[in-house]
Simulated scan of single mutants.
Amino acid sequence: MQDPKLVFVFEATGAVSPPLVVGQTPLGRRQVIPIEPGGPFTGARISGRMIGGFDWQIIRDDGVTEVEATYLLETDDGVRIECRNRGMRHAAPEVAQRMMSGAEVDPAEYYFRTTPVFYAPAGRYDWLNRSVFVCTGARYRDGVRIRFYEVA
């Protein structure tokens, strides 16, 4: 049996629009965050820009934000790849309050992890369809930065 290792794949940065609040649901407060087009992603084997997407969020009563983002990536050589990225973000109440107020918060002060699944066409990037990936994330006032790792 082998212990898994993480191999850095790429880092993506993206601007986001203000939340579109759906409202209180049985699972928590639902909101949708539009992901703006144009954010770059860069790595040794793949790079390009984000075409756009949406991050559907549930803010639970226990303070955990469940994220489920779907976005489209376009590589520098014109290949389009769908990414569905699910996970969660949470912090101590005082840190969460600072984040909600728009303050810049050091990513070391909160937990933000996701598990992306890629849907790449046959060809140069179909290796994305055959591995498990995990991400670490950082939330900023008007954007996000996410690092993608392959579980080797």
Rank of each mutant, 00 (worst) to 15 (best):
V9Y: 00
Q31A: 08
Q24R: 14
F10A: 15
P37N: 05
G43R: 00
T13H: 12
Q24I: 11
V21E: 12
V21K: 06
E11F: 00
A15C: 08
I35H: 01
G23T: 08
E36Y: 02
E36T: 09
F8I: 01
F41D: 01
Q31D: 14
E11R: 13
T42V: 09
A44Q: 05
R30V: 04
G23I: 12
L20F: 13
R30P: 08
G28S: 08
S17K: 12
V9K: 06
P40R: 10
P40C: 00
F8Q: 09
T42P: 00
K5T: 15
P4Q: 05
V32R: 10
V7S: 11
V21L: 13
L27I: 07
A12Y: 09
K5I: 07
P18E: 10
V22S: 11
T13E: 15
G28C: 07
L6W: 09
L6K: 15
F10C: 15
G38P: 02
V7W: 03
T13N: 12
P19Q: 08
G43S: 00
A12K: 06
F8P: 06
V22D: 08
K5V: 11
F10Y: 14
V16F: 07
P37V: 01
L6H: 13
E11G: 14
P19Y: 09
E36H: 04
P37G: 04
G14T: 12
R30D: 07
S17H: 06
E36C: 07
L6R: 15
G14A: 12
G39N: 06
T13I: 09
F8A: 10
Q31T: 12
I33W: 12
L27Y: 07
G23Y: 10
G38L: 03
V9G: 03
F8L: 14
E11Y: 00
L20P: 02
L6T: 15
G28E: 08
K5Q: 12
V22C: 09
T25P: 05
P40H: 05
I35A: 01
G39L: 02
P37Q: 05
G39A: 06
V21Q: 10
G23C: 05
A15G: 14
F10K: 01
T42A: 11
F41N: 02
F41W: 00
E36K: 11
G23K: 10
